[in-house]
Amino acid sequence: MVERRPFIVFLTHFILVVGVVAIALPIWITFVAASHSEIRMTQVPLPLWPGDQLWVNFKNTLFGNGLEGTETAPVWLMLTNSLVMAMMISIGKIAISLLSAFAIVYFKFPFRMGIFWLIFITLMLPVEVRILPTFEVVAQLGMLNSYWGLTIPLIASATATFMFRQVFLTIPDEMLESARIDGAGPMRFFWDILLPLSRTNIAALFVILFIYGWNQYLWPLLITTDQDMTTIVISIKQMLEVAEASPQWNIVMMVALLAMLPPILVVIGMQKLFVQGLTETDK
């Protein structure tokens, strides 16, 4: 890059650091709040530097029963629910999208274009615009308060199907021809050639979908009335309401920390895949 004047270099880093601090502040404050005692968290002004209660709060939150004065499910159970939901959504989406993209790209069959448009339409029907009737369908199928009800209505995905279709289209035709001469049937070709060749795309998509699944809010809010099916993200809202009456911010913020930790770790740990997944699915 041109211009290496010290002042400009300093200004560049200064502004970036200010930006990072501004972005990180809410999470820092959460972390600080989760490391103090309940008493300290009722005294104004609240601390800006971490205390020594992090481990205690962590233990009490993870193995205790959440907040006093409520009957929420244990935090470990809610974390498990979130994990199961996120995994089912991401694996389910990837599986059905891979299969239908494979069919659409590598087979010629009647109604092929019809099915393509059917899948395309789902792009225009986010869960928010069809909540009530979808809720009714799930209720009629007896899937309320179940993992199936939590996940299946969310796993049809046009974006994932389109992404895999794009990936398959860039694989040279000779790959299929060569496999056919080698004697591989369709499913063998799918397993031996297509899946290994789309490995990084699958991983990238998984990162995005895991975050998407873990962070689901409106849908689980509607269909889980049973405390044992609550996800960690849902529980935050209930705790906020309780905290208004009897402030236990240290516990609430510890729960918030636990709830955001898995997706943050995924983003930071698999940054390259995350960026790839984000740019591939949205473009």
């Binding site: 000779e174 021809e177 060569s178 001469i181």
Partner: peptide
């Protein structure tokens, strides 16, 4: 193709 007992070398090798 698999049952014709042929082998093929492609331009881009595949």
């Amino acid at each position: 193709p698999a049952h014709r007992d042929i082998a093929m070398v492609f331009q881009n090798y595949a």
